[in-house]
Design a protein around this nucleic acid. Structure first.
Lengths: 365, 365
DNA sequence: GAATTTTCTGTTACCGGAAACAAACATCGC
DNA sequence: GCGATGTTTGTTTCCGGTAACAGAAAATTC
């Protein structure tokens, strides 16, 4: 008399339902391997993995045991093939020699990780159209849940508008005053506070060293600077343009002919402020006795410049986090609670001081 | 009389072989869509895409046309499901507030891109074991071609040894003196050159501000420093340990009691050198008249410190590139040509100078 | 206690490619 | 003129999951 073949897939002839005979140890195990081992169907394993509740405790335990035994790890390629969704986000960021962009990327990376996503980071020159298109081409092949630009330049904006991503895309503009968005803390609160700090020290004539005009952050800062100058009734010698680097800050100051026409220099980031300070020093001005200098960002080194830099603290990590959350909201069709504005705090250090008597006459000229 | 149905898959009744009738425009097209449009089999399309030569020019052209018409983009999830290989590399990097790590990541990212890979970058605290394990857990799910650690700490090394990646893994130690590898340029050539520069300026008693001991780069630099001190017959006041940050360089100098026992400070990176310079200045020492200070890395800002910093230029981008190439060699079973050593060049600026007479007596004490 | 519903589990089909195999056709040699 | 060979293209199967459906077992109803 024959025993009835037990139900299920286990018909290979072994009487032990937890059959491990043909599990190839060199291959990474699949749910089929786990199913065979647990004596259930692969679908039950799949259900277990996705947290389905209607599984009998007894079955559940067998699956769990089998999962551990073979040290199962899901194959996300297969999963995203069927579900049509990946858990990767493509992130474009500017070449990271600046602290800001890399901090933003870091915050974004962490936020993505918390949501179960991984960030595919591509660094490129944000103002080089060819580089952007090339990067987009690459990124679009690697099936992604969404695409993120971690900073905003004109070229990037245009490329995003022209591209056909087929997935959600988002540009993390630090500030989007021009596009009708609510202006960021930096330009609405931070820069006015900075200028008011300078006005309070008696400075009447200022100079702004801005970032490249293609960057929306740079443009917004210029506008905010000019607004604040007007509001306090100050005079501005105008705006010089750098490229965010210390060298460009240095060059900006060196390009000024004749005696310094201002008592304070407002740089759009800390690096340019650093360069400006060196140039001023070399030209014989003492900081802050003769000229005050301010930056924006408060990079970790700013407190250790000589002299320590008065600057605006910017929360880059949160900026990156917000960007990811915005994108995820699109991906997962969530409605996002209004995010609190990013505080940007004035950090007064020794690079600003009261206008010295010896130069104060300049401020009125 | 009936026309014969043309061969191929195109039996849906339309007489036009380039049938586009049931291509759903909302779905991203697949090779099957392209095949139908071109009137060939999907396999022919697949062959075309992978560069197979044995396709008749006529067929080839039809496929190409169809590809363009639907703007086909390969689904890499499907591809890596069948080939069992992905084109992504998981990269672990230290929280990127330092320039070094982020430059390395950038170089790695570019090199990966050139080879058709994308870098999944995960930032973490390289000396936090829990963070490392958590990150590894995450990236092991996202099927990767390989795993890369972009800098080397003890914790990272241990975690890598314990982990079961099932894919190639590589730790990019800047230098691996301790593990028998060929020592890097920095420790074998760069630091000796730096010390010899100081010796040439008359410095006889030095202090080293090192990075955290868990970092192999920090340890190697300490060893190289001590070797070079011995070689030149110099005296060392010893080694103080920082954490790569400007603050830790500042604190290190401030922790010294009494008058400064050395005439030159050798910091293991530029940030700590910056902090050290500020502390020295606050304690009343002039740089370089009273004390010389050197860094390592040559970050872009170093040339604009006050005073500009004498340092060793390190090629981070190439370091990252090398790491990726090493990993790819493992992934694709290539034998790598021996890579040329990374040049590390001494960049002498104004933070070093001849020993001043007023303090030179200290050097012999 | 049979019929019905609910709960749990198994079967089949599919995602979009690539590999293995097979067939159709052209070319060649003797 | 017919098999041998080579070139080009098509068919089937598989990768490792998930979705949709179906079937069996248990619980409930009347």
């Amino acid at each position: 008399m024959e025993l009835e073949v037990p139900k299920g897939m286990n018909q290979a002839g072994s009487e032990d339902p937890t059959d491990r005979s043909d599990v190839d140890p060199t291959k990474t195990p699949t749910i089929y391997d786990v199913a065979r081992l647990a004596g259930v169907s692969h679908q039950t394993v799949s259900r277990f993995l996705r947290g389905y509740q209607g599984i009998r405790p007894e079955t559940r335990e067998r699956v769990l045991k089998a999962l551990h035994e073979v040290d199962y790890r899901p194959n996300l390629a297969a999963r995203s093939l069927t579900t049509g969704r990946s858990h990767r986000i493509g992130a474009l960021t500017h070449e990271i020699d600046q602290v800001g962009p890399s901090k933003i990327a870091q915050g974004a990376s962490i936020a993505a990780r918390e949501a179960g996503y991984l960030l595919d980071i591509v660094t490129l020159d944000m103002s080089n159209r060819d580089a952007i298109n090339q990067a987009l081409e690459l990124i679009m092949q690697h099936d992604l849940a969404g695409v993120l630009a971690l900073s905003s330049t004109d070229e990037m904006t245009q490329a995003f508008e022209a591209a056909d991503f087929r997935v959600p895309a988002y540009i993390a503009a630090e500030e989007d005053d021009a596009r009708g968005g609510h202006p960021s803390e930096i330009t609405s609160v931070g820069l006015p506070a900075l200028l008011s700090h300078l006005a309070g020290l008696g400075h009447l004539r200022l100079l702004h060293i801005a970032g490249p005009t293609a960057w929306s952050a740079a443009r917004n800062r210029v506008r905010a600077y000019e607004r604040a100058v007007a509001k306090h009734g100050l005079g501005s010698h105008g705006v010089l343009y750098g490229d965010w680097s210390a060298k460009s800050g240095y060059d900006a100051i060196m390009s000024l002919k004749g005696p310094l026409p201002v008592t304070a220099v407002v740089a759009a980031n800390d690096q340019m402020a650093l360069g400006a300070m060196l140039a001023l020093t070399e030209r014989g001005y003492r900081i802050p006795e003769d000229v005050s200098v301010t930056g924006i960002d408060d990079i970790p080194e700013a407190a250790y410049f000589a002299p320590p830099l008065t600057t605006l603290r910017v929360d880059f990590a949160t900026q990156g986090r917000n960007a990811v959350e915005q994108l995820l909201a699109q991906i997962e069709h969530l409605v996002l609670p209004p995010r609190p504005a990013l505080p940007s705090r004035l950090v007064a250090r020794k690079s600003t001081g009261p206008v010295g008597r010896n130069l104060s006459d300049l401020s009125g000229q």
